[in-house]
Design a protein around this nucleic acid. Structure first.
Length: 227
DNA sequence: TCATTAAATTGTT
DNA sequence: AACAATTTAATGA
């Protein structure tokens, strides 16, 4: 049923690659490499120089920051089909966050030079980055101005709305492969609470829960839930 | 292909 | 946190 996720499918499904000429697409594919990261491993670490724009071919990663005392704060997750790191790449600064694989994951590494070249030549690429930056900004503003942090339903709803973004991953269907435990790690909620919250959100008609996955039925409803 | 088993995930307490 | 129930994946005949 589900086609296997590959580097080439990630590149062909990506919204920013749609308008590329065949030759341009070939160049991107030739210069982008794939790397496996075991569950719990670092894709990249805070403070490292930024040499790549990174896409998630398969799996799930989280952007997090750990204090020396070991307390970790997770900012957001990136599912298969998502790209990240453009902020540090554009500003030419060291990596600001740790990127940790939440399960066995394959990532695509696009060299800085390729990124720059796309930035200068592709309108679709610029549009994609604009939408992505704006989308993130909106989500973080929502997090700041909302008081709903404390109830699990709001946190889970917000977390899923951030993960499932069809605007950034047009090829992705409504189905989001993620376990309730992983949602708990991202939302900062216990797995049990995630379970309860998902059932409540399902009753509200916003999503449907499946084994090892959830299907988003009403993205706007999810976003509005925490506000 | 089917039956059995192990592993992962879910739902409840 | 612990437990049972359910689903999926793996194995071998």
């Amino acid at each position: 049923m589900e086609p296997p996720r590959t580097l080439s499918s990630l590149l062909s499904d990506a919204g920013w690659a749609r308008d590329l000429a065949p030759a341009e697409r070939e160049r991107v594919a030739a210069e982008t490499i794939e790397r496996r990261v075991a569950s719990g491993g670092y894709v990249c670490r805070k403070g490292e120089p930024v040499d790549h724009w990174i896409g998630v071919v398969d799996g799930l990663v989280k952007m997090a920051n750990v204090t020396p005392e070991g307390k970790s704060t997770t900012f957001t997750g990136v599912p298969a089909g998502g790209w990240f790191g453009e902020g540090s790449l554009l500003k030419d600064e060291p990596r600001r966050y740790d990127i940790v694989a939440m399960r066995d994951t394959r990532v695509a590494l696009m060299p800085r030079a390729t990124f720059q070249w796309l930035l200068e030549t592709s309108l679709a690429f610029n549009r994609y980055l604009l939408v992505q930056l704006n989308e993130r900004l909106g989500q973080f503003i929502g997090m700041v101005e909302t008081e709903r942090f404390h109830d699990p339903e709001g946190r889970v709803a917000r977390c899923l709305a951030m993960l499932y973004n069809p605007q950034l991953s047009p090829g992705i269907g409504a189905r989001l492969e993620i376990s309730q435990e992983e949602i708990g790690l991202l939302a900062g909620v216990s797995r049990q609470r995630v379970n309860q919250a998902l059932q409540a959100l399902e009753r509200a008609g916003l999503l449907s829960v499946e084994y090892g996955a959830v299907s988003v039925l009403d993205l706007e409803g999810l976003r509005a839930f925490g506000s």
